[in-house]
């Protein structure tokens, strides 16, 4: 066996790699954050920090005139802050970074078109569903009649979304392109880079309404899944979950939930929808 003599710089690099690896293994041993009572902290500092979408009308977007974030999700956040009697601070999140932001305590709640599903429920806690929709597609008018028409298509969606996983399951041969958020996927659709954009119908309707040449596109009646939205809360914060849930139920019984829906999805809105759900207590 011949002995390879590494030059000194290589040797030092190998050594630093070894140190790096051992550093990581030390980290593995220690647990990383102390106990936190989010509800108590929120009350103490007098501010509720909520992660919301900032370019997804009508759920959350920056209003051109006021340069403020507004939308259906923001009204939900306002109701929770009001119930707690604290100030509301909005933080823009994307589909991909919302869970890390939540688990690391950068935000107290995530109200950002988040679908409740069992995999996620293992990592975070969810409120009762505050919105109900289903996953569909935006495509060029008249091009798509059945799901088979999209079999080998290029389909745009957002990183880290349930839409991304659902479409990969229902159309395994399609090429799924994940952007940082949905509007970029719509831009790609307009420029012919993808043939369809997929996500929840309520989001699609808002996006379609915003498209400059919207008469050329449509949302065909092809639903691939049901998507109930929940407010996401860090695992194990029962106090906060209870406050959020009671806020939602009170909104339903007082009629405020109806009003908020009507404001963003009513007949005079950019993307009218029917309210087919009621906020109810679930297990």
């Amino acid at each position: 066996m011949t002995c390879i003599q590494f030059p000194s710089k290589v040797q030092s690099k190998i050594q630093f790699l070894v140190v790096f690896v051992s550093l990581i293994s030390i980290l593995t041993g220690i647990s990383l954050a102390a106990h936190a009572d989010v509800l108590g902290d929120v009350k103490k500092k007098g501010t509720l920090v909520v992660g919301v979408k900032d370019s997804l009308p009508p759920f959350g977007y920056v209003d051109e005139k006021s340069r403020d974030i507004v939308g259906y999700d923001i009204d939900m956040a306002k109701a929770v802050a009001k119930k707690l009697g604290v100030k509301l601070e909005l933080k823009p999140v994307t589909s991909a970074n919302r869970f890390p932001m939540l688990s690391e305590g950068n935000v107290d709640l995530v109200i950002a078109t988040t679908t409740k599903n069992p995999e996620r429920a293992a990592q975070v806690d969810f409120s009762h569903a505050y919105f109900l929709t289903g996953q569909k597609f935006i495509v060029a008018k008249g091009k798509v009649k059945t799901l088979q028409d999209l079999d080998t298509a290029r389909i745009g969606t957002a990183k880290g979304s349930t839409s991304e996983k659902n479409v990969a399951t229902s159309l395994p041969k399609a090429k799924v392109l994940s952007y940082d958020d949905y509007p970029q996927a719509v831009l790609a659709l307009q420029q012919g880079k993808v043939q369809a954009v997929t996500t929840d119908e309520a989001i699609l309707a808002g996006l379609l309404a915003k498209m400059p040449n919207k008469d050329k596109y449509e949302i065909p009646d092809l639903k691939i899944s049901d998507e109930p939205y929940g407010i996401a809360i860090k695992k194990g914060e029962k106090g906060l979950v209870d406050v959020v849930n009671s806020t939602l139920l009170e909104m339903e019984s007082s009629g405020d939930a109806d009003k908020v829906f009507a404001q963003w999805f009513g007949p005079n809105s950019a993307a009218p929808l029917k309210r087919t759900f009621k906020i109810t207590a679930e297990k």
């Binding site: 710089k9 290589v10 690099k13 190998i14 790699l17 790096f20 690896v21």
Partner: peptide
């Protein structure tokens, strides 16, 4: 961590080859 290690190994291998070449 996995991705970082891959980047580091990549730079290690390439600078290593460069050093040997030198």
């Amino acid at each position: 961590t996995a991705a970082t290690l891959i980047y580091l190994i990549l730079s290690l291998v390439i600078t290593g080859l460069m050093e040997i070449y030198n």
